[in-house]
Amino acid sequence: MDLEGRWKLPPTNLIASSAARKWKGIGVELRRHSAGEVPEMVADRMVIAIAVRGNHRAIIHRRGNGVRQATHASRGTVWLCPQGVAEDNIRITSAIPEMLHIYLPAATFVALAKEDNFSDVTRQSIRYKAGFQDPLLFQLAAVLLEELTAETSSGRLLVETAALTVAARLLHSHGEAALPYAARTRPAIGLDITRLRRVIDFIEAHTDEDVGVDDLASVACLSPFHFSRAFKEATGLTPHRFISQRRLQRARLLLETSELSITDVASMANFSSQANFTRAFSRIIGISPGEYRRRRT
């Protein structure tokens, strides 16, 4: 997702960015914030800021569309700035070590609103809100931060699925309109056997490619959000976890039966580097790829 736009923080204090990633429907930046004032900005996408390493002494003063807010930047604190809101006065009283900024396009909310049968999609704006804790958003921020700082083989799929969950959380829990009863009580329905087989065949044929949630949803002829829920209901695994297991199985087979270097195995399993592959392999298997090969051959 392009991170350029009217809502753009200065380049200083940027720790990490998803600008070079192939993620669709989401942008992420990890920043430290110094004490001082931030220039006036107009949100041209949904902006979520979460203090992942906060400072309870720091206070963020901000004004958006005439509404003034003052919030301590404690760990886990969330700020929301919906698309179209102009923030003309932002002041930070003390440095904040790490804040994750998540950017979501309006199209994601429109699609989810239609899927959940909101009566008036145009009214589904998110509140201009600050100073609250949301455990689910904080958990999702941790997932995004981990992928941002240590890219994995199926990270794009993980991030795009997380983006849909973030959008759904905002729409359902922090939106201007209540979620319809039908959407709140709708049971989860898994993929039918034909769609599931088609999706699994596609995964098997593209194990070494960077597959996104849109790709899999298209194969199943479902919306991305509906697909993610239906796939997990059918398999017991998220699409990301399912593909990660498939890639790990392929990597293990290559280590056991081929003379490929570990770097080549990492590449064929769609890891961005040998270091990321070794880290992920060791975390799941309990030993490094090199040690696994020595024990199996």
Rank of each mutant, 00 (worst) to 15 (best):
residue 79 W to C: 15
residue 99 M to C: 15
residue 21 R to G: 02
residue 67 V to P: 14
residue 26 I to S: 00
residue 67 V to F: 09
residue 22 K to T: 09
residue 115 E to A: 14
residue 27 G to S: 06
residue 73 A to E: 01
residue 139 Q to P: 03
residue 23 W to D: 01
residue 107 A to S: 15
residue 81 C to H: 02
residue 92 I to F: 08
residue 138 F to K: 03
residue 22 K to Q: 11
residue 85 V to W: 05
residue 113 A to I: 10
residue 107 A to F: 11
residue 49 A to K: 00
residue 63 R to S: 12
residue 79 W to P: 02
residue 69 Q to L: 06
residue 109 F to I: 00
residue 106 A to T: 13
residue 58 A to G: 13
residue 131 G to C: 05
residue 120 D to H: 13
residue 64 G to C: 05
residue 88 D to V: 09
residue 97 P to G: 11
residue 102 I to H: 00
residue 24 K to Q: 14
residue 66 G to M: 14
residue 98 E to H: 13
residue 67 V to C: 14
residue 33 H to L: 13
residue 140 L to E: 01
residue 65 N to A: 12
residue 19 A to T: 12
residue 35 A to N: 08
residue 128 Y to G: 07
residue 119 S to I: 08
residue 16 A to V: 08
residue 18 S to I: 05
residue 107 A to D: 13
residue 45 R to T: 06
residue 104 L to T: 05
residue 38 V to F: 04
residue 134 D to E: 11
residue 138 F to W: 07
residue 126 I to A: 03
residue 26 I to Q: 05
residue 67 V to Y: 14
residue 111 A to Y: 05
residue 24 K to G: 11
residue 130 A to Q: 13
residue 46 M to Q: 10
residue 95 A to T: 09
residue 129 K to H: 10
residue 56 H to N: 15
residue 46 M to D: 04
residue 94 S to H: 14
residue 59 I to C: 10
residue 37 E to V: 04
residue 58 A to V: 14
residue 21 R to Q: 11
residue 120 D to F: 13
residue 24 K to D: 15
residue 19 A to Q: 14
residue 83 Q to L: 07
residue 42 V to T: 15
residue 49 A to M: 10
residue 25 G to N: 07
residue 21 R to F: 09
residue 91 R to P: 05
residue 50 I to V: 15
residue 85 V to Y: 02
residue 119 S to F: 09
residue 113 A to Y: 10
residue 68 R to V: 12
residue 46 M to L: 09
residue 90 I to D: 05
residue 115 E to Y: 04
residue 119 S to A: 06
residue 71 T to F: 03
residue 134 D to P: 01
residue 130 A to E: 00
residue 53 R to N: 15
